[in-house]
Design a protein around this nucleic acid. Sequence first.
DNA 1: CGTGTTTGACCCGCGC
DNA 2: GCGCGGGTCAAACACG
Length: 333
Amino acid sequence: MEYSSSFVDTSLDLNAKPLQLFSETPIQQVQGSFIDFGMRTSVKEENNGALIEELNRVNTENKKLTEMLTVMCENYNTLRNNLMDYMSKNPEPNLETTTTKKRKSVERSSTTSCMIKNNASSAKNNDNSESCSTDEDHNSTKKPKEEHVKAKISRVYFRSEASDTTGLIVKDGYQWRKYGQKVTRDNPSPRAYFKCSYAPTCPVKKKVQRSIDDQSILVATYEGEHNHPHPAKLEPNDSSSNRCVTPASLRCSTSLNLSAPTLTLDMTKSKKSITEDANKKATTKKIDSPEFQQFLVDQMASSLTKDPSFKAALAAAISGKILQQNQQRNGEH
DNA sequence: CGTGTTTGACCCGCGC
DNA sequence: GCGCGGGTCAAACACG
């Protein structure tokens, strides 16, 4: 199809049915295009063998690339599982506690909890994976109203100084008023309750508690959505707020659960690395912002270009395409 | 004096 | 129905 119009397209067609690439259709269409361009039959016959050979080669390369892509996907899944394994062991051990009450409350607390619980279960035992949708379906049948009313919840991890005894203060750019503090049963560290005080009608609440495993990690749980713009956007000179909300890296890739309106950021990197990252990016990035998308693309490109075999295969594929293009042009002239 | 924090009391849902 | 535990309220307090 694409071959009838142009050879300029250097797409590798990794997922475009590689076997069809060598079906009779492209050759016939290539031949047809030659005829359409008024080429002599002798030129067509001279190029036929080279084209078929080139198509064979490209087809083989496409297969190789497809296999490499499969391997990459497997590696990605392995890496993701390792990440989830780490997550399940490190910051939120209380989510893995199996007391029925905890489990119930976790199930009630909509999407983020669903994600983390799912992560934990998949990390602990894949055979025991209880899918997120199953939980939600279960909830929807049990408490359909709560499902809709329940506020949006997200959980963010911040790293604070180990020597920081100033309390459960998380500078995320918003203005919070503390309205309570409680020592919970599963964590000796007190849990602080905050309400957003930037706008009087803002329903957002925040809970901050130190991680039971790592006292230097603050776990902030946000409930609800702000009905006002981020103060940092209105006050661009507020460098402190910008610095504090800069995501050092994604703890949970949003691609793992795109439908979930959650944001979990890893603030657990060392202060030095956070500063370095912040200096490199020099900007606050949101998940859906073009800058962050570009950052992800750069990261992916960097990972791919570090793989010499992938680079070689990619170069071969592109050179094959260029060769095809040159042959096409030679045929036209 | 205004604003924010602290902290004990109270409320409410859940499990037994 | 009772006890437990998380979440919230509100008076007292601290601070600039």
